[in-house]
Measured scan of single mutants.
Amino acid sequence: EEERTFTNEEEARKAKKEAEKRGLRVTVTKDGTTWRVRIG
């Protein structure tokens, strides 16, 4: 499991799409101005 943080919503969405392409489970949460993308 890996967690990545982004300040840019577009980049967070891109990371989510890429992980889904690899067949991984992805959770995206917004924490104030930060987007957290949890993969795995």
Rank of each mutant, 00 (worst) to 15 (best):
K16S: 11
T33P: 15
V28R: 00
R36C: 10
E3P: 03
R25G: 03
R38W: 09
T7M: 10
G32H: 02
T27V: 09
E18D: 09
A19I: 07
F6I: 01
E9F: 13
K14A: 13
R22T: 04
G23W: 02
F6A: 01
T29V: 12
E10S: 09
E18G: 03
E18P: 00
N8P: 01
E1S: 10
A19N: 03
R13V: 13
D31H: 07
R13Y: 15
T5D: 06
V28Y: 03
K16N: 01
T29R: 06
D31W: 04
T27G: 02
K30A: 07
G23K: 02
W35L: 06
D31Y: 06
E3F: 08
K17P: 00
A12Q: 01
R36D: 02
T29Y: 11
A19Q: 03
L24S: 03
K30N: 10
T34E: 12
K14Y: 09
V37H: 01
R22I: 08
V28L: 14
W35E: 13
K14V: 10
D31R: 04
E11T: 04
E9A: 08
E2H: 12
R36G: 02
G23C: 06
E20G: 02
R13E: 13
K21P: 00
A15V: 08
K30T: 15
E18I: 07
K17V: 12
E3A: 04
E9V: 07
E9G: 05
E20R: 04
A12E: 01
K14D: 09
K21I: 09
V26G: 03
V37D: 05
R22V: 06
T33I: 09
A12C: 15
T33M: 10
T7Q: 09
T34Y: 14
K21E: 13
T29Q: 06
I39P: 02
K17D: 13
E1C: 15
T34A: 09
I39K: 01
G23H: 05
E11A: 09
F6E: 01
K14G: 06
V28M: 13
E2P: 06
E1A: 13
A12D: 00
R22C: 07
E1P: 12
E1G: 11
E10W: 14
L24K: 05
E2Y: 15
T34W: 11
E11D: 13
T33C: 15
K17W: 12
F6R: 01
T34N: 14
R4G: 05
I39L: 04
E18T: 06
T29F: 11
K30F: 15
V37S: 00
F6P: 01
G40K: 10
N8V: 06
K21Y: 07
G32W: 00
E20W: 04
D31F: 07
A15H: 07
E18S: 05
W35T: 14
D31N: 06
W35D: 12
T7V: 08
K16W: 13
L24N: 03
R36A: 03
F6S: 01
L24I: 05
W35I: 15
L24P: 00
A15S: 04
D31I: 11
E1F: 15
R38N: 10
E18Q: 07
D31L: 07
R22A: 10
T27F: 08
I39Y: 06
R22K: 10
V26R: 00
K21G: 11
